[in-house]
Design a protein around this nucleic acid. Sequence first.
DNA 1: CTGAAAGCGCTTACAG
DNA 2: CTGAAAGCGCTTACAG
Lengths: 304, 304
Amino acid sequence: MRVADRTADRIRRIADEMNYWPNLVAQQLRGRECGLIGVLIGASSTTANFRRLAAIEQEAYRRDQRLLIGQFHGDPRSTAHYLADFLSRGIDRLICFHNPAPNARDEATQLLGKFRSAVFQTASPVASGQVVDVDRAAGVADAVGHLVRTGRERIALVINDSPDVDPLMHDRLRGYRAGLKQAGRREMLEWIGTGTFPPPRALADEAVAYLLERRADAVIASNDIWAIELMRSLRRVGKCVPADIAVVGFDNIDAAALADPSLTTVDQNYAGFAAAVMDAVNASASTAQTPRIVQPTLVIRESA
Amino acid sequence: MRVADRTADRIRRIADEMNYWPNLVAQQLRGRECGLIGVLIGASSTTANFRRLAAIEQEAYRRDQRLLIGQFHGDPRSTAHYLADFLSRGIDRLICFHNPAPNARDEATQLLGKFRSAVFQTASPVASGQVVDVDRAAGVADAVGHLVRTGRERIALVINDSPDVDPLMHDRLRGYRAGLKQAGRREMLEWIGTGTFPPPRALADEAVAYLLERRADAVIASNDIWAIELMRSLRRVGKCVPADIAVVGFDNIDAAALADPSLTTVDQNYAGFAAAVMDAVNASASTAQTPRIVQPTLVIRESA
DNA sequence: CTGAAAGCGCTTACAG
DNA sequence: CTGAAAGCGCTTACAG
């Protein structure tokens, strides 16, 4: 309905004076979108996940949407519980930071199908899900490039788990090999952990023993926690970072800037990730389901 | 209405089969509580705030409530914007991690009055607000007690800002003095920063110069970041932690366990805090408005 | 073009 | 005790 601007203004002013606020619950019941997005995160969430969440909330605010958050709590059924709860509230857009636990997957999968859009990191457990991912391989390859340019000769990779078991580690290995190959290096120095995380001191010492034995002068770790543990272990055996050996992490958690020496690391580009996630969650389901890939950036500090 | 259990079961089963889920939006419009709680946090939120948020969500889940989160985004009006939005959605219980910016306070204060309950940390900007706080003074006094018992003779305190300006620092100073007094110590070694946070290297060096000059053999910092910076600075001048000087932090952030040596610190007891917050936010307004005080606990690691 | 009515999915008070 | 009706605060399709 068209109304003169002056009249519209007058009505708005009076509405304000009378303290009138539209009731969003009634609007929603009548069919309007509620602007709420359900977010599922793990209970034992890492600092990186919280940073991601904060960035997504900021992006949501810009688009005038709100986040309803739910954490898993060990209980595998809690996934389904939250999904059903979201749907009951008319929330049909979902951001999922963790895949549902396998034993609750059937029930969860069925519920996931009822969402208008569902965004996952790395991989989607359902065909209708959209994927936003960080180009981990490119991040590690960048780190290799930086180490090559700063004169490192023997660059090693330390990853937390077998690349066959953990696809995230597979990406890092891929980026490492690609980076070295591009620099014309042939020898690969790869140490692969047992999946134990965070790494106990003895495990970090084992990795460091490998680095020393192979005379590595640089190492890229699968994440900042591992990188920091490697630096501690290196200090115990009297090695100096970065003089004797350069160390690069992954994630850029708070502790990276606080480490001594401060840690050079691959920042996950949370802002870019958040924008891609919000684009995906607001996209209509008919949109092509190609994963959205976000590029990370290398943050150069003292350790490399 | 009373119905035989068998019948109720049968109805429930059929409802399940037909995939019936009650529509919470309609229930809410009809007057039922929606089980949603609005949460306001700062955009530049610290790790400590995210930990608190995670703990509160966990506690909310146990009580079958959900959190709708909003961050400030520099824009002081965003506080009022979020408060109005919460009310429009029928959310009349609020957890506020930050006081509204002063220039938006009038508008925000008026809106705050419309909430059934509003919980703040440390202090409430409105009379109707409830307060949950951590006993910072007790935490620091505990740390002093631990240092005294482990044979430290000259225990210093390093705080970030003047106790007249920052009440959080006032609490630490109070706890420090009380702890020393109880141990029969008379000399107070107090270094007070300029409010700059995180501390630049030169400022940490200044604090360390003070510690050396006064021959301190232990120091309690106002938080973990400061404690870690002090350890870095101490290392630069060749001092060994904890042999030469013990260091205690406050907060127990992730980086505390990762520091080298790992940091002894006062844990804020997030679980206890979360339970108190949820008790407060669900309490009826008529409840006496005495602040709920949560006790922190000392986590002893390598640095002290 | 305007204004009254129907209806979103529930709950509750009320008539039979 | 049971079942139909009213109404929460909106929006939209429809009759005047």
